[in-house]
Design a binder for these strands. Structure first.
Lengths: 163, 163
DNA sequence: TTTGCTAATGTTATAATGTTGCAAATTTCG
DNA sequence: CGAAATTTGCAACATTATAACATTAGCAAA
């Protein structure tokens, strides 16, 4: 199950998950937040997949674990993880993905491959500042910025240019 | 029901809706697409509200009209309208809003007020180009770009600075 | 240890959003 | 007109998300 569709930049995924969990523990300690077993397990599941997982996907795996969980359990865990910036919700997919910049400031921008389903999170200061300038011109005060780009990743881009 | 919460720039809303419908008819003619009564009515409903309407909101109004419609009717009409760039779906709201730049190229960016719910669509070339450059650096080929900004519009921004 | 508080979880039901599939009606066009 | 294609009606269903309330775990003060 390790490599059905690798992310853009291949890497040791187990190590990458382990590191994400370690960082999550640190971040939660710093905030006096409890990374309970359920929360940690949900975070782990999301990290193990480079493709965003839906809440019900998570639920299904928990069920396999023997954890007889109901939807609210998963949504609550996801809310918690989002609150501390450990996962992001991808609005255009109704799904969740591990945050690769946990703890830092978030100008998250997501590249979502239509073909393989992988998602890459970027920090794009130029995008962020352009968005804030455009908002400022309308005297709008931004609170939360969603930038999601659907398209084709390098591995999946059809050779023939699109019609 | 005409002015529960005006958009950022006040205007004659009936005229604005009428113009949008006229443009829609033109655009559909140019594409040999049929703007049927249901489709036109859905477009009209969406335009009459500056706040994005959910599919089931539209459905409810159709029911008031006496039109005994089921969800697929609405979703199909919305798909059609989206296809011709007459409405946009706001992913973060699961709702639809009239496109204020129908027929032109779409670098749509949406400013969504958390307080009054109004949405302003902007064309922001600087944002679009920043997004495309960031994607290009990852050799990603963008297909569809979603930029949605939640925050506070000028009329609703709390005087006391946040946080 | 017991008590009391708060955060977290379990449980059931239900709401909200979106889709599939097929048959009937309508429009288009030869 | 009559065949083909598009559009609509309709029923059932699938997916995503939340409400409401009972229960339990963690922790600190009496």
């Amino acid at each position: 199950m390790s490599s059905s569709a690798l992310p853009y930049r291949p890497h040791n995924h187990d190590a990458c998950v382990a590191q994400a969990l370690a960082e999550a523990r640190t971040i939660c300690q710093q905030h006096n937040a409890r990374l309970t077993p359920t929360r940690e397990r949900v975070l782990e599941l999301i990290w193990q997949s480079h493709k965003p997982l839906g809440a019900y996907d998570v639920l299904a795996v928990l069920a396999e674990d023997g954890h007889n969980a109901a939807p609210p359990t998963v949504y609550r865990a996801l809310d918690f993880l989002q609150q501390y910036g450990l996962v992001h919700r991808i609005a255009s997919l109704n799904a969740f993905t591990g945050c690769t910049h946990a703890g830092k400031s978030h100008n998250g921008m997501f590249l979502i491959c239509r073909s393989c389903g992988n998602v890459l999170e970027l920090t794009a200061p130029a995008v962020s500042s352009a968005v804030h300038m455009a908002a400022a011109e309308e005297s709008f005060r931004p609170d939360d910025v969603t930038v999601e780009v659907s398209g084709y990743c390098p591995g999946c881009a059809p050779d023939h240019a699109h019609g």
